[in-house]
Design a protein around this nucleic acid. Sequence first.
DNA 1: AATTTTAAACGTATGCTATACACTTTTATG
DNA 2: CATAAAAGTGTATAGCATACGTTTAAAATT
Lengths: 238, 238
Amino acid sequence: MTTQSKVNNIFYKEGQKLLVAVDCIVFGFNRGKLKLLIMERKIEPQKGKWSLIGGFVQKDESLDQAAYRILQACTGIHDMHLDQLYAFGEVDRDTGGRVVSVAYYSLINLELFEQELLKEYNAKWINIDDIPELALDHNKMANSALEALQKQASIKPIGFELLPEKFTLPQLQLLYEAIYNRKMDKRNFQKKILKNDLLIKLDEKDKSTSKKGAYLYRFDLDKYSKIKSNEDSFYIKV
Amino acid sequence: MTTQSKVNNIFYKEGQKLLVAVDCIVFGFNRGKLKLLIMERKIEPQKGKWSLIGGFVQKDESLDQAAYRILQACTGIHDMHLDQLYAFGEVDRDTGGRVVSVAYYSLINLELFEQELLKEYNAKWINIDDIPELALDHNKMANSALEALQKQASIKPIGFELLPEKFTLPQLQLLYEAIYNRKMDKRNFQKKILKNDLLIKLDEKDKSTSKKGAYLYRFDLDKYSKIKSNEDSFYIKV
DNA sequence: AATTTTAAACGTATGCTATACACTTTTATG
DNA sequence: CATAAAAGTGTATAGCATACGTTTAAAATT
């Protein structure tokens, strides 16, 4: 046996084609609660069960494109940000056959969300600590995504993707408290957030939650895109 | 058009089967240098070019299993640790056809490495800052893996996977300096490392690199597996 | 007009951690 | 016995995380 043929025998195997899916873990934020978008599963197995938003990758589209296509069709949102989470590839993860699924997660600004799509697709937002049993390994995916979100939130200013363009510091704090599932100190939180110098204080107040009213802020996207390049210029230790 | 059929038209598409590969970014450490394992590509396209270690996922094995099989066949090592890095899924990433590749990275203790396999597979270790042009998108994969390694190294004691069982603090420092590609202060480094209280100082010295000799240490695996569960008990800010 | 109510805004003191920095110890070698 | 080469060790300083309570603004109520 030559070396070459030995190599082939031991580890070189011809490729076998598999189904490749993408599943999207979509987070939203509303009224102080972090939410997850789920919908009724449209295909067997487990048709009709609650599940993440997903679909199959086509031959002529990248993984990113597939995730984008599916998420856009289902939320109506354009230009949303998607991050790849993990490729789930257990042999028996889909009881209907071998499917490798690449999970993506996304943060959605609920203001931009087309509510009518919820009905159209039998979808709904549920509170993050109230997730039902989902199809296949989707609960595992959702949990991983929440962990990833927590990691992200400490090294990147992710708030502006989940909040409206103008938001107050108390709102932002509620978001972080929802993500990390614990109360934070108001003064320390504001110090940490403002230290990064990425928020612009506006001359407007939001009086919807208090008589005094809270100042509105917006993210300084210009400054952010400048510093994004040089690593760890943003940092929130939570 | 019913709602259901509209759904199908817009975003539900039948699955198309694709080739799924795994590629492994294998790091080693020797003589103060961080190394990457590459081999001659065995298949078209770009047959003969340097590339990462890779192969196709079979129908009856998980992604993890495929990566493990391929890496084990190529290094002879058992029980090595593999982490999934990212799924690379551009349509044209493989010029020979549509292949989605899930990249894994691994840290190898060079002492355990069967050197004869290097010749058998036309493989070699190259210094991390001396990587040639690799096949397909493998350079991109290697770069991502190095970034992931840097992140890992600051939150987990990964040293023991790249070093022999017994090692000296200067050796460990060289490893971190190689990973982060910069010099560190000896005294501060030792303080940070020892503070985690995961190293056991032995009564032996390694005199291979100095007349005085440096004390050998080993990782306290027991203690590590105990604390591993409760998050962020380990922390090296670099 | 004065009082009450509600949430927002704000500052300081303390302890911990990262960092900067230089001399002494050991022992093989000549 | 002198030299050389790397290992080992401590302190002072600045920045950051944390804990903690009072004042301010403005609407609502009397």
